[in-house]
Design a protein around this nucleic acid. Structure first.
Lengths: 127, 127
DNA sequence: TCTTGACCTTCCAGTCACTGGAACCCTTAT
DNA sequence: ATAAGGGTTCCAGTGACTGGAAGGTCAAGA
């Protein structure tokens, strides 16, 4: 299976797959002509990566998750620890965004949005 | 007022202020020795930028907001339009993060987090 | 006067996770 | 012979800084 099929199967752009190889997340074999040849295992890894990235894990987290995934002796506590830390990060981001949202939403509602220059949004940004 | 005072006053790192000058957001005067000298207007702009960035506006949005702020003839509708679009972006990000959060939080709860290798988190990532 | 330390300057490189594009090779069909 | 549609590498750019090196400037103290 070559790269465009692998891309379709994993739901990732071919460019991204090349990039993942570049940074050592997987090592597909090569055909005689230099084309990448993706094994089932490569495909599983790509799908795993696509899902982990979809959950917002960083590339470095994905690398660790892949290592845990391939380690039959892993402790689920290690996976859980990684996921919990990430979950906390997500919660922090949501809180930040919520705060921005609430402030901004209030300002937008108070802005007349007409031809006149007076604007509570700009007023609130000014010292 | 030189850069470290301006930085303290606006709540921005000096590096960031230099960067903002670099990309043309402000143009502080220079003393004979080459040091930047910040006027009151420069300080107002920096505070404005710090607050707008704090609300998550992109640098390009900040540039547009600054231009509107300085334009006495602006229509508040233009400001509101910009802010509304940004608000929508924030809402989309929150929705994405919430989805990640809900999935991940469920997986974390279902993971025993012990010495054994069996792990619902890894299972859900695998094809 | 000399030195020390805290300022300031510019410039270059790195971050993160891709993404676009150029230039070129391989394969298959017409 | 040529064209289309794969594949390859390598380089540069994204956003918004941030770190660090190398060096100039200034005020205070021995």
């Amino acid at each position: 299976m070559n790269i465009s099929e692998a891309a379709a199967s994993a739901g990732l752009p071919a460019k991204t797959i090349r990039y993942y190889e570049d940074i050592g997340l997987l090592h597909p074999a090569r055909d005689a002509n230099g084309y990448r040849r993706f094994s089932d295992n490569d495909l599983h890894k790509l799908t795993f990566l696509a899902r982990a990235r979809g959950l917002g894990f960083s590339i470095e987290d994905c690398r660790r998750l892949l290592a845990l995934w391939e380690d039959q002796e892993r402790a689920s506590a290690d996976v859980r620890q990684l996921a919990s830390a990430h979950l906390q990060g997500i919660e922090a981001k949501i809180a930040d965004l919520r705060a921005m949202h609430d402030t901004l939403s209030d300002l937008v509602q108070r802005c007349a949005g007409d031809n006149r220059p007076d604007c509570p949004i700009l007023n609130s940004l000014q010292s």
